[in-house]
Amino acid sequence: MTRPRSRGRLRGFTTVLLFLLPALVLFLLLVVAPIAVAMYTSFFKWNGLRGLPTDFLGLDNYTRAFSDPVFLGDLWHGGVLIVLSLLVQLPMSLGLALLLNQRLRGRAFYRLLFFAPYVLSEAITAVLFTMILSPDEGLANQILESIGLGGLEWFAEPSTVLLSIFVVMTWKYFGFHMILYLAGRQGIPEELIEAAKIDGAAGWKVFRHVTLPLLGPTIRISVFLSVIGAIQLFDLVWIITDGGPSHASETMAVTMFQFGFKRFQVGYASAISVVIFLISLVFALLYQRYVMRRDLEGATTVLRDKR
């Protein structure tokens, strides 16, 4: 009796393996191998030319990164953008989503309109805002001046550049988060809201005790995407400011690109890439372990229990 069963299991295993193999080979080749190579080269002084790196430095590239004011500035900018996203961008998206969940005229049009910026590529967004926020002839300053306010220097002033970048980021991504929240809100059964109302809960209380908790999973995934996006921010900054003026808008990815492809210090750039990877990885693991644990139940946990 045992023989056919184990044969069956073996066949099952072979089938699984064969189905997995193409994806696995691609994954190893295109994801795992580059990560391994980047980790390896991050221990060397290497300009990316002349075959394999030979000039071993140990952890020097890492200590250099963490004593470089530019890189420390990158970390600070990343932190500022994350905090601003969480405190401004996401609440705004949530508010809009709830608003557009109400019955109001032209609802579908507004939904489409607010989602439209997300469809544009980052490069196009960046070029667009370079023109709109241009200090001399840009649309924004002309409007500001016509209503009697002085124009701002936007991307041309170290003290305002990071906020200006954040404005562009928000413009581009609030629609995406809004759609997420809208979908989450529509997944909440009306009966619950009605029940709460019958129990005497009004406006704010319904939101606080029914809508918000039930939107929990959506909010958690939206926060997750927002944070990872801020950590890896590159395209917008690169096209709009190159990280300037005076490194005031530089992000880790921009610094990495500068050193890897402009200065040919590929070893150091690899070290920065590994740091970005580790920050993202640690954040993702901790977040999934502690914050999204309940949301993931039924996915990972149950599978493990059955085995």
Partner: peptide
């Protein structure tokens, strides 16, 4: 230098 020169590119509009 012109207004906003710190953010100006070489051959772009403005």
């Amino acid at each position: 230098f012109q207004k906003g020169y710190l953010g100006a590119a070489y051959d772009k509009p403005d």
